[in-house]
Design a protein around this nucleic acid. Structure first.
Length: 203
DNA sequence: TAGGCGATGCTCT
DNA sequence: GAGCATCGCCTAG
């Protein structure tokens, strides 16, 4: 947790990689910003997962559908879906148009609007506000209405430049059964706001 | 701190 | 009708 920083937008898409693994790493340390009539909430991305083209664990594996259409948009668009009836998950499309891939954002370190997050989440525990994909969507009020937004230019939901360059660790992805051995989860080493195991899984 | 488990509703077959 | 990229609550230690 750190005091409010100046969050700068990316000047253009050429400042980010158009490849899922590289983007999943690059997003660690960037800022996710939610502008709302009630004020701004934001957090530093500290944990992501890559869902690459041809990945059996990816929602895009079955082909394009009504739900997963945003995964097939040009890079850096929001893919938001509902899971288990109760939670939303936020992803960033990550490959050229039509390919079908995304990076799941799993955890944030709260940066701005912490009181609003506490209210939306119904807890005062700052460490738990955005620790988990469903929790961060609740804290930032992200739902299906934001699906498909262009995340470098949108006014309500956007990704800003990194506020630091963290040491990044890798592990298996969480909560999946297919292709579970692949080390496609990325996190900031030592950061207390990440959601799962803190260490590299055994090979 | 870690692990088990039920709630929950949408998407796709 | 099955299957979830989860969460919160409950135990045990």
């Amino acid at each position: 947790l750190q005091s409010a920083a100046v969050i700068e937008r990316f000047a253009g898409a050429e400042q980010l990689p158009i490849e899922t693994i590289a983007l999943a790493r690059k997003l660690i340390g960037c800022v996710l910003v939610r502008e709302h009539s009630a004020g701004r909430t934001s957090g530093i991305i500290v944990e992501t997962e890559a869902y690459v083209p041809g990945d059996p664990a990816s929602h895009a594996w079955i082909g394009e559908s009504r739900r997963n259409g945003s995964m097939f948009l040009a890079p850096f668009h929001a893919y938001v879906y509902q899971i288990y009836g109760t939670s939303f998950c936020f992803n960033v499309s990550s490959e050229p148009h039509g390919r079908g891939a995304a990076v799941l954002v799993r955890a944030l370190e709260p940066l701005e609007g912490i009181e609003a997050m506490q209210h939306r989440r119904g807890t005062m525990a700052v460490r738990d506000l955005c620790r988990g994909p469903g929790r961060l969507c609740r804290a930032l009020e992200i739902d299906r209405s934001l699906d498909g937004r262009a995340l470098l230019s949108d006014e309500e939901l956007w990704i800003g430049q990194p506020v630091r360059s963290p040491a990044v660790g890798t592990s298996r992805r969480i909560g999946i059964t297919r292709a579970a051995h692949r080390l496609f989860r990325y996190y900031e080493r030592g950061n207390p706001y990440i959601s799962g195991p803190r260490r590299l899984s055994p090979p």
